[in-house]
Design a protein around this nucleic acid. Structure first.
Lengths: 122, 122
DNA sequence: GGAAGTACGTACATTTTGGTAAGTATTCCG
DNA sequence: CGGAATACTTACCAAAATGTACGTACTTCC
């Protein structure tokens, strides 16, 4: 890997710059499960197992990992009720909702345009 | 992996359904290099090597693979001039431009909100 | 009583993604 | 003349993503 100069402090965020933190954040939001979690969580609160069922084919392990990543980025809020059996609620933060709107927008567009896209595919 | 029933023909596209083709298309658009290619190519035509430089740290191999994927999805147009040394131009199709607008929107939002996001990160 | 559900963590296996190096035919530049 | 640039491809290897299986400490339902 070529070594890129770190962006000078105070420079504008730019996803096209290899070392810009915005690139990593974008990757979290657009990661395989990250994007789907945002879509699934848009406008509602779900507990862990509901979320797993909503996504359909995600494994426990990946869902937990993805949620922790999004929580670390401040996109997802985790509320654990201290009971047995466990009960944990996941919802979007303020920022997470903003992101979710855009991701949903992309997902909606894909769904809407799917016939045309499939028609163009080679 | 659990086996999911294929979506009944005629059902609405739904990215949350594991077997829906829209999910794969979304993944192509949001893949690590796919999203960045759309951003880089938005509103302009670039040749292979310019694109590589625009992304900064992508390898020849991945860039070629990503471009072929996006071309197969009908997002990218490839125009090869038959000369030596090779000269190939890449640009977005009609559909690709629509996608790029949304991906750019997400990227722009991340760049704009980056300070807040970094401030929230744990 | 026995089975299933809950929200994970951990160890291990597999799959996917990504990088590196080399090769190509030719032109341009110093 | 020697070296760099061009747009890939292929073979090979490393790293990252993802899945599977198991364990947990209880509760609820049949």
């Amino acid at each position: 890997m070529k070594d890129f100069p770190a962006p000078p402090p105070g420079s504008c965020p730019d996803v096209l710059h290899p070392r810009c933190p915005s690139r990593q954040v974008l990757q979290h939001l657009t990661s395989r499960w990250g994007a789907l979690v945002l879509v699934a969580l848009a406008g509602r609160t779900l507990r862990f197992s509901d979320l797993r069922r909503a996504l359909g084919d995600v494994s426990d392990r990946m869902l937990a990992q993805t949620l922790q990543g999004l929580e670390a980025d401040g996109m997802v809020r985790r509320v654990a009720h201290d009971v047995v059996p466990p009960h944990v609620d996941y919802s979007l933060t303020e920022i997470g909702q903003e992101a979710a709107v855009l991701v949903r927008g992309l997902a909606d567009w894909v769904e809407r345009r799917l016939p045309d896209i499939l028609g163009c595919q080679r």
